[in-house]
Amino acid sequence: MQFIEWGALANIVGLGILVGAGLPSLFAIGVRALAGPGARGADGRVAPRRVVLAWTCFGIAAAAIGGAIMFLAAGGH
């Protein structure tokens, strides 16, 4: 009997770091794009390039949540 399922554990750690640390980082990039230093120009508006970047990041995070809900609903638990 194998006491630790090393394969599964390695997957959990690897993908866990990729997703569990990657998504917050992506979100943080979005936040920095919208509110970081230099985000607002002289007219007090955020440059469109930054807005697009931010919402791409937030969109990926939201999509990940959607995917997770599908995973739960599909009985993957």
């Binding site: 959990i12 993908l15 866990g16 569990g20 640390a21 998504l23 917050p24 995973f71 739960l72 993957g76």
Partner: peptide, 8 residues
């Protein structure tokens, strides 16, 4: 992190 580790 919790959500990711639990689901994975």
């Amino acid at each position: 992190s919790s959500a990711a580790v639990i689901l994975l």
